[in-house]
Design a protein around this nucleic acid. Structure first.
Lengths: 155, 155
DNA sequence: GTGGTCGTAACACTAATCGTTACGACTCAC
DNA sequence: GTGAGTCGTAACGATTAGTGTTACGACCAC
Protein backbone atom coordinates (compact mmCIF):
# COMPACT_ATOMS: atom_id res chain seq x y z
CA UNK A 1 0.00 0.00 0.00
CA UNK A 2 1.18 3.45 -0.84
CA UNK A 3 2.37 5.49 2.10
CA UNK A 4 -0.52 7.85 2.49
CA UNK A 5 0.25 11.31 3.85
CA UNK A 6 -21.71 -11.21 29.78
CA UNK A 7 -21.36 -14.65 29.92
CA UNK A 8 -18.58 -14.05 27.80
CA UNK A 9 -17.49 -10.60 27.03
CA UNK A 10 -14.36 -9.54 25.30
CA UNK A 11 -13.30 -5.99 25.15
CA UNK A 12 -9.86 -6.37 23.79
CA UNK A 13 -7.96 -3.23 24.42
CA UNK A 14 -7.29 -2.86 20.79
CA UNK A 15 -6.87 0.23 18.74
CA UNK A 16 -10.46 0.45 17.53
CA UNK A 17 -11.36 3.42 19.71
CA UNK A 18 -8.13 5.19 18.76
CA UNK A 19 -8.60 4.67 15.03
CA UNK A 20 -12.26 5.68 15.20
CA UNK A 21 -11.36 8.89 17.03
CA UNK A 22 -8.60 9.50 14.50
CA UNK A 23 -11.06 9.15 11.63
CA UNK A 24 -13.62 11.46 13.21
CA UNK A 25 -11.01 14.11 13.97
CA UNK A 26 -9.71 13.86 10.42
CA UNK A 27 -13.15 14.24 8.87
CA UNK A 28 -13.98 17.13 11.19
CA UNK A 29 -10.81 19.03 10.37
CA UNK A 30 -11.21 18.32 6.66
CA UNK A 31 -14.73 19.71 6.70
CA UNK A 32 -13.63 22.81 8.58
CA UNK A 33 -11.16 23.39 5.82
CA UNK A 34 -14.01 23.59 3.34
CA UNK A 35 -14.37 20.09 1.97
CA UNK A 36 -17.64 18.27 2.15
CA UNK A 37 -16.73 14.60 2.19
CA UNK A 38 -13.63 12.59 3.05
CA UNK A 39 -12.77 9.26 1.45
CA UNK A 40 -11.77 6.16 3.32
CA UNK A 41 -8.55 6.20 1.33
CA UNK A 42 -7.59 9.65 2.61
CA UNK A 43 -8.34 8.70 6.22
CA UNK A 44 -6.51 5.40 5.85
CA UNK A 45 -3.50 7.34 4.60
CA UNK A 46 -3.44 9.48 7.71
CA UNK A 47 -3.96 6.54 10.06
CA UNK A 48 -1.54 4.33 8.11
CA UNK A 49 -3.91 1.47 7.66
CA UNK A 50 -6.12 -0.06 4.99
CA UNK A 51 -9.18 1.76 3.60
CA UNK A 52 -11.32 -1.29 4.30
CA UNK A 53 -10.45 -1.05 7.98
CA UNK A 54 -11.63 2.55 7.94
CA UNK A 55 -14.81 1.71 6.06
CA UNK A 56 -15.60 -1.04 8.57
CA UNK A 57 -15.09 1.23 11.54
CA UNK A 58 -16.95 4.18 10.00
CA UNK A 59 -19.76 1.78 9.14
CA UNK A 60 -20.21 1.13 12.85
CA UNK A 61 -20.11 4.84 13.54
CA UNK A 62 -22.78 5.36 10.89
CA UNK A 63 -25.02 2.79 12.54
CA UNK A 64 -24.58 4.81 15.72
CA UNK A 65 -25.60 7.98 13.89
CA UNK A 66 -22.26 9.73 14.18
CA UNK A 67 -21.35 9.92 10.49
CA UNK A 68 -23.02 9.65 7.10
CA UNK A 69 -21.70 8.13 3.91
CA UNK A 70 -22.43 8.79 0.29
CA UNK A 71 -21.78 6.29 -2.45
CA UNK A 72 -20.97 6.82 -6.06
CA UNK A 73 -18.46 9.12 -7.70
CA UNK A 74 -17.16 11.93 -5.54
CA UNK A 75 -18.60 10.17 -2.54
CA UNK A 76 -17.20 9.70 0.95
CA UNK A 77 -17.90 10.37 4.60
CA UNK A 78 -19.26 13.35 6.48
CA UNK A 79 -20.06 14.03 10.11
CA UNK A 80 -23.69 13.52 11.04
CA UNK A 81 -23.23 15.57 14.22
CA UNK A 82 -20.94 18.36 15.31
CA UNK A 83 -17.64 17.35 16.89
CA UNK A 84 -18.75 19.19 20.02
CA UNK A 85 -21.70 16.85 20.48
CA UNK A 86 -19.82 13.59 19.96
CA UNK A 87 -18.17 12.18 23.07
CA UNK A 88 -15.63 9.42 23.37
CA UNK A 89 -18.39 7.41 25.05
CA UNK A 90 -20.47 7.64 21.86
CA UNK A 91 -17.52 6.32 19.90
CA UNK A 92 -16.73 3.67 22.51
CA UNK A 93 -20.29 2.36 22.47
CA UNK A 94 -20.26 2.32 18.69
CA UNK A 95 -17.10 0.25 18.30
CA UNK A 96 -16.67 -1.70 21.55
CA UNK A 97 -19.55 -4.05 22.17
CA UNK A 98 -18.52 -6.06 25.20
CA UNK A 99 -18.09 -5.40 28.89
CA UNK A 100 -14.70 -4.38 30.22
CA UNK A 101 -14.13 -7.49 32.33
CA UNK A 102 -15.42 -10.97 31.66
CA UNK A 103 -16.81 -13.59 33.99
CA UNK A 104 -15.66 -17.20 34.12
CA UNK A 105 -15.87 -19.05 30.83
CA UNK A 106 -17.44 -22.07 32.51
CA UNK A 107 -19.97 -21.84 35.30
CA UNK A 108 -18.21 -22.05 38.69
CA UNK A 109 -19.13 -24.79 41.14
CA UNK A 110 -22.56 -23.77 42.43
CA UNK A 111 -22.16 -26.10 45.42
CA UNK A 112 -19.26 -23.98 46.62
CA UNK A 113 -20.01 -20.81 48.53
CA UNK A 114 -17.45 -18.83 46.60
CA UNK A 115 -18.37 -20.40 43.28
CA UNK A 116 -22.00 -19.56 43.92
CA UNK A 117 -21.56 -15.95 44.96
CA UNK A 118 -18.57 -14.83 42.95
CA UNK A 119 -20.41 -13.96 39.76
CA UNK A 120 -23.10 -11.72 41.21
CA UNK A 121 -20.51 -10.13 43.48
CA UNK A 122 -18.08 -9.35 40.68
CA UNK A 123 -20.84 -8.21 38.37
CA UNK A 124 -21.88 -5.63 40.93
CA UNK A 125 -18.34 -4.43 41.43
CA UNK A 126 -17.51 -4.39 37.72
CA UNK A 127 -20.75 -2.58 36.98
CA UNK A 128 -19.82 0.30 39.24
CA UNK A 129 -16.34 0.53 37.80
CA UNK A 130 -17.62 0.47 34.26
CA UNK A 131 -20.05 3.26 35.07
CA UNK A 132 -17.15 5.39 36.24
CA UNK A 133 -15.24 4.61 33.07
CA UNK A 134 -18.22 5.58 30.95
CA UNK A 135 -18.60 8.85 32.82
CA UNK A 136 -14.96 9.65 32.12
CA UNK A 137 -15.35 8.84 28.43
CA UNK A 138 -18.48 11.00 28.28
CA UNK A 139 -16.53 13.98 29.62
CA UNK A 140 -14.34 14.13 26.50
CA UNK A 141 -15.81 15.39 23.24
CA UNK A 142 -14.33 14.89 19.80
CA UNK A 143 -13.87 18.66 19.73
CA UNK A 144 -11.62 18.28 22.78
CA UNK A 145 -9.71 15.55 20.98
CA UNK A 146 -9.19 17.66 17.86
CA UNK A 147 -8.14 20.60 19.99
CA UNK A 148 -5.58 18.45 21.79
CA UNK A 149 -4.36 17.07 18.47
CA UNK A 150 -3.81 20.55 17.05
CA UNK A 151 -2.18 21.73 20.28
CA UNK A 152 0.66 19.21 20.05
CA UNK A 153 3.78 21.28 19.42
CA UNK A 154 5.25 20.66 16.02
CA UNK A 155 8.95 20.52 16.58
CA UNK B 1 2.03 2.22 35.26
CA UNK B 2 0.60 2.10 31.84
CA UNK B 3 3.06 2.26 29.04
CA UNK B 4 1.34 3.78 26.10
CA UNK B 5 3.82 4.42 23.39
CA UNK B 6 4.15 0.83 22.34
CA UNK B 7 3.16 -0.33 18.96
CA UNK B 8 0.75 -2.99 20.00
CA UNK B 9 -0.92 -3.29 23.33
CA UNK B 10 -3.59 -5.82 24.08
CA UNK B 11 -5.47 -5.96 27.27
CA UNK B 12 -8.18 -8.32 26.32
CA UNK B 13 -10.94 -8.01 28.81
CA UNK B 14 -10.65 -11.61 29.64
CA UNK B 15 -11.51 -13.42 32.80
CA UNK B 16 -8.06 -13.24 34.37
CA UNK B 17 -8.99 -10.64 36.95
CA UNK B 18 -12.18 -12.52 37.79
CA UNK B 19 -10.45 -15.86 38.21
CA UNK B 20 -7.64 -14.32 40.25
CA UNK B 21 -10.14 -12.66 42.57
CA UNK B 22 -12.02 -15.95 42.83
CA UNK B 23 -8.86 -17.77 43.84
CA UNK B 24 -7.92 -15.18 46.45
CA UNK B 25 -11.40 -15.18 47.95
CA UNK B 26 -11.38 -18.97 48.06
CA UNK B 27 -8.01 -19.14 49.78
CA UNK B 28 -9.03 -16.44 52.23
CA UNK B 29 -12.26 -18.17 53.19
CA UNK B 30 -10.52 -21.54 53.42
CA UNK B 31 -7.94 -20.13 55.79
CA UNK B 32 -10.59 -18.49 57.94
CA UNK B 33 -12.14 -21.90 58.28
CA UNK B 34 -8.96 -23.17 59.87
CA UNK B 35 -6.96 -24.63 57.02
CA UNK B 36 -3.47 -23.46 56.30
CA UNK B 37 -2.97 -24.05 52.59
CA UNK B 38 -5.23 -24.53 49.58
CA UNK B 39 -4.30 -26.62 46.56
CA UNK B 40 -4.64 -25.52 42.99
CA UNK B 41 -6.89 -28.50 42.43
CA UNK B 42 -9.37 -27.35 45.07
CA UNK B 43 -9.46 -23.83 43.68
CA UNK B 44 -9.77 -25.13 40.13
CA UNK B 45 -12.72 -27.21 41.25
CA UNK B 46 -14.50 -24.15 42.59
CA UNK B 47 -13.69 -22.02 39.54
CA UNK B 48 -14.43 -24.88 37.15
CA UNK B 49 -11.16 -24.70 35.31
CA UNK B 50 -7.86 -26.52 35.10
CA UNK B 51 -5.40 -26.57 38.03
CA UNK B 52 -2.62 -25.41 35.72
CA UNK B 53 -4.59 -22.27 34.91
CA UNK B 54 -4.85 -21.58 38.64
CA UNK B 55 -1.17 -22.25 39.23
CA UNK B 56 -0.23 -19.88 36.42
CA UNK B 57 -2.42 -17.10 37.76
CA UNK B 58 -1.38 -17.62 41.38
CA UNK B 59 2.23 -17.62 40.21
CA UNK B 60 1.72 -14.07 38.97
CA UNK B 61 0.09 -13.13 42.24
CA UNK B 62 3.05 -14.61 44.10
CA UNK B 63 5.44 -12.50 42.05
CA UNK B 64 3.37 -9.51 43.14
CA UNK B 65 3.70 -10.57 46.78
CA UNK B 66 0.03 -11.35 47.31
CA UNK B 67 0.28 -15.09 47.96
CA UNK B 68 2.86 -17.66 48.92
CA UNK B 69 3.21 -21.24 47.80
CA UNK B 70 4.72 -24.31 49.38
CA UNK B 71 5.86 -27.31 47.44
CA UNK B 72 6.03 -30.90 48.42
CA UNK B 73 3.47 -33.15 50.05
CA UNK B 74 0.66 -31.33 51.84
CA UNK B 75 1.68 -28.19 50.05
CA UNK B 76 -0.41 -25.47 48.44
CA UNK B 77 -1.15 -21.77 48.52
CA UNK B 78 -1.59 -19.27 51.33
CA UNK B 79 -2.23 -15.55 51.47
CA UNK B 80 0.87 -13.43 51.93
CA UNK B 81 -1.23 -10.45 53.02
CA UNK B 82 -4.59 -10.02 54.67
CA UNK B 83 -7.61 -9.81 52.40
CA UNK B 84 -8.25 -6.35 53.80
CA UNK B 85 -4.93 -5.08 52.46
CA UNK B 86 -5.25 -6.50 48.95
CA UNK B 87 -7.15 -4.32 46.50
CA UNK B 88 -8.49 -5.19 43.08
CA UNK B 89 -5.84 -2.82 41.73
CA UNK B 90 -3.13 -5.02 43.23
CA UNK B 91 -4.66 -8.02 41.49
CA UNK B 92 -5.19 -6.09 38.25
CA UNK B 93 -1.58 -4.97 38.16
CA UNK B 94 -0.44 -8.50 38.87
CA UNK B 95 -2.36 -10.17 36.05
CA UNK B 96 -3.04 -7.48 33.43
CA UNK B 97 0.15 -6.09 31.96
CA UNK B 98 -1.00 -3.81 29.16
CA UNK B 99 -2.75 -0.48 28.90
CA UNK B 100 -6.51 -0.32 28.59
CA UNK B 101 -6.53 1.21 25.12
CA UNK B 102 -3.95 0.74 22.42
CA UNK B 103 -2.50 3.18 19.95
CA UNK B 104 -2.27 2.63 16.20
CA UNK B 105 -0.40 -0.51 15.22
CA UNK B 106 1.53 1.34 12.56
CA UNK B 107 2.81 4.88 13.01
CA UNK B 108 0.31 7.36 11.58
CA UNK B 109 1.36 9.71 8.81
CA UNK B 110 3.61 12.25 10.52
CA UNK B 111 3.17 14.68 7.64
CA UNK B 112 -0.52 14.93 8.44
CA UNK B 113 -1.59 17.28 11.25
CA UNK B 114 -3.96 14.73 12.70
CA UNK B 115 -1.56 11.83 12.20
CA UNK B 116 1.15 13.79 13.97
CA UNK B 117 -0.87 14.93 16.98
CA UNK B 118 -3.29 12.08 17.52
CA UNK B 119 -0.98 9.86 19.53
CA UNK B 120 0.14 12.36 22.15
CA UNK B 121 -3.40 13.68 22.36
CA UNK B 122 -4.96 10.27 22.92
CA UNK B 123 -2.20 9.25 25.30
CA UNK B 124 -3.01 12.20 27.49
CA UNK B 125 -6.71 11.47 27.42
CA UNK B 126 -6.31 7.74 27.96
CA UNK B 127 -3.86 8.35 30.78
CA UNK B 128 -6.40 10.35 32.72
CA UNK B 129 -9.12 7.79 32.16
CA UNK B 130 -6.87 4.94 33.21
CA UNK B 131 -5.97 6.80 36.39
CA UNK B 132 -9.64 7.01 37.24
CA UNK B 133 -10.07 3.32 36.55
CA UNK B 134 -7.13 2.50 38.79
CA UNK B 135 -8.53 4.64 41.58
CA UNK B 136 -11.83 2.74 41.34
CA UNK B 137 -10.05 -0.61 41.44
CA UNK B 138 -8.04 0.55 44.44
CA UNK B 139 -11.22 1.33 46.35
CA UNK B 140 -12.28 -2.32 46.44
CA UNK B 141 -10.44 -4.73 48.71
CA UNK B 142 -10.52 -8.50 48.50
CA UNK B 143 -12.25 -8.40 51.87
CA UNK B 144 -15.04 -6.40 50.20
CA UNK B 145 -15.19 -8.99 47.45
CA UNK B 146 -15.47 -11.89 49.89
CA UNK B 147 -18.09 -10.03 51.86
CA UNK B 148 -20.14 -9.46 48.70
CA UNK B 149 -19.70 -13.11 47.74
CA UNK B 150 -21.01 -14.33 51.07
CA UNK B 151 -23.85 -11.80 51.00
CA UNK B 152 -25.37 -13.26 47.85
CA UNK B 153 -28.67 -14.79 48.95
CA UNK B 154 -28.69 -18.57 48.66
CA UNK B 155 -32.07 -19.45 47.29
C1' DG C 1 -21.73 4.31 -20.18
C1' DT C 2 -17.53 5.43 -17.26
C1' DG C 3 -15.07 6.11 -13.29
C1' DG C 4 -14.76 6.60 -8.52
C1' DT C 5 -16.35 5.24 -4.02
C1' DC C 6 -18.74 2.66 -0.62
C1' DG C 7 -20.34 -2.13 1.26
C1' DT C 8 -19.04 -6.37 2.33
C1' DA C 9 -17.54 -11.08 1.84
C1' DA C 10 -13.57 -13.96 2.10
C1' DC C 11 -9.19 -15.30 3.60
C1' DA C 12 -4.63 -15.29 5.82
C1' DC C 13 -2.02 -13.65 9.59
C1' DT C 14 -1.03 -12.28 14.34
C1' DA C 15 -1.68 -12.27 19.20
C1' DA C 16 -3.73 -13.54 23.60
C1' DT C 17 -6.04 -16.72 26.43
C1' DC C 18 -7.42 -21.11 27.85
C1' DG C 19 -7.40 -26.10 28.45
C1' DT C 20 -4.68 -30.03 28.59
C1' DT C 21 -0.79 -33.32 29.04
C1' DA C 22 3.52 -34.20 30.66
C1' DC C 23 7.24 -34.25 33.61
C1' DG C 24 10.78 -32.49 36.65
C1' DA C 25 11.47 -30.32 41.36
C1' DC C 26 10.45 -30.31 45.81
C1' DT C 27 8.98 -31.69 50.55
C1' DC C 28 6.53 -34.15 54.03
C1' DA C 29 5.29 -38.60 56.25
C1' DC C 30 6.82 -42.87 57.06
C1' DG D 1 15.84 -43.31 51.84
C1' DT D 2 11.24 -44.03 49.57
C1' DG D 3 6.95 -42.77 48.06
C1' DA D 4 3.18 -39.80 47.52
C1' DG D 5 1.43 -35.41 46.76
C1' DT D 6 1.96 -30.80 45.04
C1' DC D 7 3.96 -27.05 42.72
C1' DG D 8 6.57 -25.09 38.37
C1' DT D 9 6.63 -24.91 33.83
C1' DA D 10 7.18 -26.30 29.07
C1' DA D 11 4.65 -27.63 25.06
C1' DC D 12 0.82 -27.97 22.14
C1' DG D 13 -3.80 -27.35 20.13
C1' DA D 14 -8.26 -24.85 20.12
C1' DT D 15 -10.64 -20.71 20.34
C1' DT D 16 -11.35 -15.86 19.84
C1' DA D 17 -10.66 -11.07 18.26
C1' DG D 18 -8.60 -7.94 15.51
C1' DT D 19 -6.06 -6.53 11.40
C1' DG D 20 -4.59 -6.31 6.61
C1' DT D 21 -5.61 -7.50 2.06
C1' DT D 22 -8.00 -8.77 -2.26
C1' DA D 23 -11.99 -8.93 -4.73
C1' DC D 24 -16.19 -7.59 -6.50
C1' DG D 25 -20.88 -5.90 -6.57
C1' DA D 26 -23.76 -1.61 -5.65
C1' DC D 27 -24.30 2.94 -6.32
C1' DC D 28 -24.05 7.62 -8.20
C1' DA D 29 -22.14 12.02 -10.50
C1' DC D 30 -20.89 13.23 -14.76
Amino acid sequence: MACYGREEGFVSANSRLTIAAHALAWIGLYQRRGHDVATSEQIAGSANTNPVVIRRLLGELRRAGLVESRRGAGAGWALARELESITLLDVYDAVEPGPLFAMHRATPDQECVVGYGIRPAMQGIYGGIEETLRAELARVTMQDVLQDVLAVPRQ
